[in-house]
Design a protein around this nucleic acid. Structure first.
Lengths: 149, 149
DNA sequence: TTCACTGCAAACCTTTTGCAATTCT
DNA sequence: AGAATTGCAAAAGGTTTGCAGTGAA
């Protein structure tokens, strides 16, 4: 078991959620995937592995994972990527909201979570310029990953 | 006619698009709205004004406006907000892609387009840290606007 | 044993497609 | 007049809901 699986299953168990077979399968699949996945893709990938999980259940499992901040929702595609809260905690902003800092590779669809060192500066500049009080943010950076450059 | 309407209609005309009644109605509605609107909301608002435009036509009109960078697509909601290209041009990055810098008010849903002075610094830091080559980005900042603070 | 969770059927909402009728230029 | 655009009908996709049955604790 990798760190993510332990982390996700442990967190769900601690919060009183039941560790069912479909939940475990979805968590394992998300852990193994470099890319973000849609509910249908998850259902199909599991089926290809001989594991049948209803699409509706996948939707509900993803909702549960999202509410527990165990996945990111990629805004540009609506798909879901595993997420380690450790990375989130380093974010100096947006304690309440689930904030996204994702690097998305155009070529291979790989997604990397990142901690944004310059975010504070940017947000301060924006607040000064706009008179908005910023509480959270979503950022997606599209480009080429190290392997695809 | 406001600057946006002139700008949008002029740009479409220049590119050889026809200035039809439905197109003009949608552009006028977007100009008047502080908030982002969905296709159905646009259809319903027009209908409330006694103007009937088919939902399918609204979809096609929005697609046309988006392709000509006359609207932003809000990623967190899928809705559409008028957009003045002047602001885009100031963005030092993402010449090819349509890049988004939106401030979204949680309380009143108002949306403000912004030029991000700190973007270059942030992107440079991310590239150094990740070995990603960043080509474009989407940023949405959620908070409270000056009126709602 | 009990209650959370799953699976199935069906509804719902959004978006897309094809084609004939309309209307800008 | 001619081509682009609209409106209508229908299909396609994605997501949600209700409920009975299953299975984790």
């Amino acid at each position: 078991m990798t760190a993510y699986i332990d982390y996700a299953i442990g967190l769900l168990k601690d919060k009183g959620f039941r560790i069912t077979k479909p939940r475990r399968l979805v968590v394992e699949l998300l852990d193994a995937s470099r890319e973000a996945l849609s509910a249908y893709e998850i259902k199909d990938l599991l089926e290809a592995n001989g594991e049948k999980v209803d699409t509706v259940s996948v939707y509900r499992i993803l909702q549960c994972l999202e509410e527990n901040r165990l996945v990111h929702r990629v805004l540009t595609s609506g798909k879901v990527k595993k997420c380690m809260l450790e990375h989130e905690e380093q974010c100096s902003l947006a304690q309440e909201e689930h904030c996204h800092h994702l690097l998305i590779c155009k070529a291979c669809d790989a997604i990397e979570e990142v901690h944004c060192p310059g975010t504070r500066v940017l947000v301060d500049a924006l607040e000064a310029q706009s008179r908005f009080k910023i509480q959270s943010h979503n950022m997606e950076f599209i480009g080429l990953c190290a392997q695809c450059v």
